[in-house]
Amino acid sequence: MNDTMASDPRIEWMHRQRTAGRILLLLLAAVTILGSCAPLSTPANEETDSEPVAAYYLKADEINRMNTMILSRAQTVSPPGEYLLGEGDLLQISVFEAEELDSKVRVSSRGLINLPLIETVAVKGLTAIQAEEKIEALYRASYIKNPHVTIFVEEHISQRITLVGQFKIPGTYDYPSKQRLLDVIALGGGMNEKAGQLVQVRRSRSVSGQPDTFMIDLDQLITQGNTQLNIEINGGDVVFIPEAGVFFVDGSVRRPGAYAIKHHTVVQEAIVEAGGFETWAKKDAIKLLRVFENGERKVIDLDLSLSDVREMAINDRDILVVEESGAAGFMKGFGVSFLGTGFSYYGR
């Protein structure tokens, strides 16, 4: 009986299958154990997408020192009469000699208000004091011998500023009076621990012949004391402090803006990140604005036909500007001023 079972080919086949199954299970267990014990590693030829941004951060004591200097120089309180009236502002107007003429009015989209007796008055762009004097003159001309008018701005709608990026307290703020760059940085609580040393100020209202965007180096303004960089901020402006470890590309590229430095970003890659050249770009007229070890920012002309220029490494706070061809240069749609360098760029 036993000899018959041993010689049965079906039983032998089942025995071989069980044995193979046990071996396979043992191999899988061994692979699992070895895999869990092996250290995690990255292939030698595989680089991380970007350097740790923390490598570009200022030290905590340096940030604290700069914030202390900002707060010490900031003028956090300005005369209320400096506020420029604009559309949407709600005004409480009082006439001391005739209370029946008191009124609460909102500035229209055209910058006008309607008052008793004198009807329409244009106040947009005037300070509260200037508007008071104008209304007094109108009442004096026909109705009141020596009127005294006061204006209280109940709602500041037209004059707000937006602080974005690496502020301690970013956001949109009422802007009741004109202040300067250091004042509004203090308004946003100062710089946080990730802040870079470059600030971009974008104007909301274009003025013919003047730039729409300003680039300011905080190191030159705060540490070196270049007060000319402490520009006046207007209502509606956007103030942007980028994170450390970024570069800017502007001018005749498809996507101008701020970009993080990768593991080894070079000039050619920076242009590609910004979407490449516009059709009207002057490819042999590229400016590099770079901060050197002595803190001075210089303008360098680049020629991309040279391989060593294309492979030039990008540094923190670098600014690349691609100029326009001669024909396109007649169309001046925007302007960027790089304060402290003497260089401004006007383009479409």
Rank of each mutant, 00 (worst) to 15 (best):
A186R: 07
D250S: 13
K283S: 09
E293R: 04
L182E: 08
M215L: 14
K104T: 10
T341M: 07
K178C: 00
M331I: 12
V299I: 07
P43G: 10
L26V: 10
I233K: 05
F152D: 11
S7D: 12
V123D: 01
P52N: 08
D284R: 15
T19S: 13
L90D: 03
I261T: 09
A128W: 05
V184N: 06
T150P: 02
R348G: 04
D89G: 05
Q130A: 07
L25R: 13
L40D: 15
L90F: 02
L26H: 01
L198N: 07
N146R: 13
Q166I: 03
P211F: 00
Q179M: 08
I113D: 05
V107I: 15
Q92D: 15
H156K: 01
P242A: 09
D183K: 07
S204A: 11
D237E: 08
D183T: 01
Y175A: 01
E296M: 05
L91N: 00
I93N: 06
D284C: 03
T48V: 11
G245K: 15
G276T: 08
D8G: 06
E12F: 04
L84G: 01
I113R: 06
N315L: 13
I241P: 05
I161P: 08
Y143W: 08
G88R: 06
D61R: 04
G88M: 06
A313K: 15
Q220R: 09
R254D: 13
R180A: 07
A195G: 10
T150N: 12
G340V: 08
V123A: 02
V207Q: 15
I129M: 06
I216C: 08
L101Y: 11
F214H: 13
E132S: 07
I233C: 10
S36T: 09
Y173K: 00
L91K: 02
A328N: 04
K145Q: 12
L163V: 07
E193P: 00
K168L: 11
V184E: 13
T341K: 14
I11Q: 14
L90Q: 03
S305P: 03
S78N: 09
L221R: 09
T68S: 12
I300E: 10
T227S: 14
E154H: 04
G125Q: 03
V31N: 08
K298S: 07
I135Y: 10
A128P: 02
K287Y: 04
E136M: 11
T127F: 04
R297V: 02
I144G: 13
G329P: 00
S108F: 12
R18L: 14
S7F: 05
E133I: 01
D174G: 01
T223W: 10
F248E: 03
T279M: 15
